[in-house]
Design a protein around this nucleic acid. Sequence first.
DNA 1: CATTTCACCTGGTGGC
DNA 2: TGCCACCAGGTGAAAT
Length: 274
Amino acid sequence: MPELPEVETIARGVDKRARGDRIVQVWFDHHPQPFKTPRARQARGLTGRTILAVHRTGKHIVFELSSSGSTPDAQWIVHLGMTGRLLVTTPDGPVAPHTHARLTLASGRELRFVDPRRFGRLEFRDLHRGTVFGAPGDEPLTIGEREFAALFRGRRLYIKAALLNQTLLAGVGNIYADESLFHAGIRPRRRANRLTRAELDRLRIALHEILTHAIRLGGSSVSDYVDADGERGFFQLEHCVYLRTGEPCRSCQTPIRRVVVAGRGTHYCPKCQQ
DNA sequence: CATTTCACCTGGTGGC
DNA sequence: TGCCACCAGGTGAAAT
C-alpha cells in the first residue's frame, strides 16, 4: 500500500520521465470510481497541457500543468489508494489489467494509471477557477517539535489511530505507523494525549528517520508496489514489526504480536514497546 | 466537535 | 480440483 515513501519515489520517477512533456491524448476506461472530477472535464483539461513538474503532497501525486508558458494554470492530482500504480511506458508495451487511464505524451511515451481495487482517485483542478491543492495534514518530514506535540494535545484516541489520521499528519499509513512506534518504543494503544514530551519527540524523530531511509531504498514492496519504472523497493527487508507476527523481535527476540487497532492490523513488540 | 463504524473494491487465502 | 465465504486496508460519508 503506497504511503509517503512509495508516493515520493513514484512522484520523483514520473517527474524525471515526464517533466516538460505535453499530453496530446487522453483515454479513460468506463469505471466511474476513480474520477473525483467528471471524466469528460478531466480529459478536456488534461489534453494539450504541458507537465511542468510532478511532486508529492501527503499521499497525493500532484502534476503542475500549463497550457502555455512556465506558470501552472491547472493541476492533476493522483491518489493511488491501496493498489494504484503510475507507470511511464512505451506505447506498445502490454497494457496491464485494470488500467483505467492512458495519457499519450508528445515524446511518444505513455503515462498509465493501473488500480485493481479502484480505491485510487483522479482529480483535475483549473487554477483559474479554484485554489491550489494542499493536503490537510502537516508533513512528517518537516514538522518541528512544538507543532508535532500540539497535534496530539487533548486527543484521547489511540496513538496508532492518530498517526493514520491524514488531517493531523499527511502521508503516514499502516506500515510506517507500526514501524515508527516500534522505533520510538511506544505501544500502539497508548492514548495520544498521554504520551510524554520525550516520547512524542522520540516518535517524531523515529518517523523522520524511517521515512527518509525508506525513500532512499525506494519504498516498501509489500503486495505488489512498484515505482514509475516498474521496479520494486527494498525497505520491506528492514521492517522490524510490520507483517512479522510471531517472528522474533530484531532487538530482543520476543515474538512480535498482532492486534487490531482502529480497524487495522497492528504489529508491535510487547517487550520493547511499553 | 471528536471519534467510531461502514461501504467501496479485488485478489488472495483457507475450508470443504 | 473447484467453489465460495471471508478479509485486508485508505478514505470519506454516515452514525454515534
